[in-house]
Design a protein around this nucleic acid. Structure first.
Lengths: 253, 253
DNA sequence: CTGTTTATCGTCAAGCAGACGACTATGATC
DNA sequence: GATCATAGTCGTCTGCTTGACGATAAACAG
């Protein structure tokens, strides 16, 4: 049977990105300010149309590079300095999610280390890192200093919440928390990542025992650093293990 | 800025279903035989186009009902007799995955109890439950009795593998295994579900202690049954808990 | 009645997690 | 330079969970 274009309704397909990082002890997401209607002036997740000859993962990696300058981490390739973890999150296709037309958005989740330089390709007025708490708690509508208190555009609050939940659960049983760290990092820095993502305090001694005792999680690089103050700490890299067994336990409550 | 149809390439959007059940000690998936080109005569996952005014979850539930007569389980609604668990799995959008046109498929995962009656809406020649092992091990190409040994159509082997992996991991930390059981079931039946999905043997005594000791997982209905032979077993229903803490541990290997 | 099957309860040792004490090595402050 | 604050690292102890497995219970088949 030949291809019959009338047999299916046409959709626009986009990728939206939940890009997370840990800055100053807080889990932050990348937000862009919309320059056009609908939701003009509101904050939204970065994203864009999938091109006609482009895979979904490719489109997400392209958008990520355009917005942040980060490369998607290729497990097969070499360890790049500016590499972020990128994975598909979920797909959102409510018929009314975009008032203009029928858009299906394949959301992706990216985890990036704290970027020393601001991202490329956007001016400071239209792109920012915002604490996810601020972005999600804006249903009632008040920012701290007359800041933009409107909720995220479209269904992006839901997408962001799903992405944050994915990140929170995935660092339990995988080594993904290292994606938030620079290439070399200390146990304390890794612990602060867990604390920021989970929003809890962890016992430094038990945490240290756990992560250094899990084979393949961390490999020492030999160096030490004192950038956090206090006694110098050993530097580590992410080891080859991707799944943690047994997992890190997220405290109750 | 008004809606500009030329600004994005049109896509067809479909839902494909990985419907799993446990039959005769084996994890089985629903497969349909393709009646048309491409891949005519090959087995594929059930699925179809998303309609113009339909949500993705709605489309998946509609396809599920059309193929199996099962309802998608609504957590808010009453417990229906023929209810299956349904969740979004992942989205597949390789530009070449369908030779006819650009199709993005939002795969969903459904977990159903073993259906006493064959499914409605399809004749026996074009729909069947097949052990996932058979469906996935056909890359080399030989079935047991001259059976259809060709691999699944399109990228459906990959989708099925992803769905199976999701199910395998999700029954570890959630109560989803009960979705494979009838409304009332015994601990032994639940154990056989785990054994079939994971492909391992579990100690009946430790399993019994674990599931009956996890609060909210199982609630006794008071009845007993002897349908498995041997000493009568207590009947249970799924309790309210959806997350198991601590999780069921899948044996190493 | 005896053997088989399945369910259920108990015991024990090993391992892990949470609570927390103690010590170490830095920089900051007086 | 002594003291303090900070952060890192090593231990100890206790309770809980797990995995291995013995023992008993209640049905059915011969």
């Amino acid at each position: 049977m030949p291809y019959d274009p009338s047999a299916f309704p046409p959709f626009a397909v986009t990728v939206d990105l939940v890009v997370l990082t840990v800055r100053r002890h807080a889990l932050c997401a990348l937000a862009v300010r919309r320059g056009e209607s609908p939701y003009q002036g509101r904050w939204a997740l970065p994203g864009g149309f999938v091109r006609g000859d482009e895979d979904l993962a490719t489109a997400a990696a392209r958008e990520l590079a355009e917005e942040t300058g980060l490369h998607a981490h290729d497990p097969a390739g070499p360890v790049l300095p500016n590499a972020a973890h990128l994975e598909q999150l979920a797909t959102y296709g409510d018929p009314k999610r975009d008032p203009r037309m029928r858009v299906v958005s394949v959301a992706h989740l990216a985890l990036a280390p704290d970027l020393p330089a601001p991202r490329a390709g956007g001016d400071a007025h239209s792109v920012r890192w915002a604490p996810v708490e601020d972005l999600l708690d804006q249903e009632v509508g008040y920012g701290r200093e007359g800041e933009q208190a409107a909720p995220l555009a479209f269904d992006h609050a839901r997408i962001l919440a799903d992405g944050v939940e994915r990140a929170r659960s995935k660092i339990e049983y995988s080594s993904l928390a290292t994606a938030f760290c620079p290439q070399e990092f200390t146990v304390g820095e890794l612990r602060r990542v867990y604390e920021a993502v989970w929003g809890v305090a962890l016992d430094p001694r038990n945490f240290h025992r756990k992560v250094t005792g899990t084979p393949g999680f961390l490999v020492p690089t030999g160096g030490t650093t004192t950038r956090q103050g206090g006694r110098p700490a050993q530097l580590f890299q992410a080891g080859g293990a991707t799944l943690l067994n047994p997992p890190m336990l997220r405290p109750e409550a």
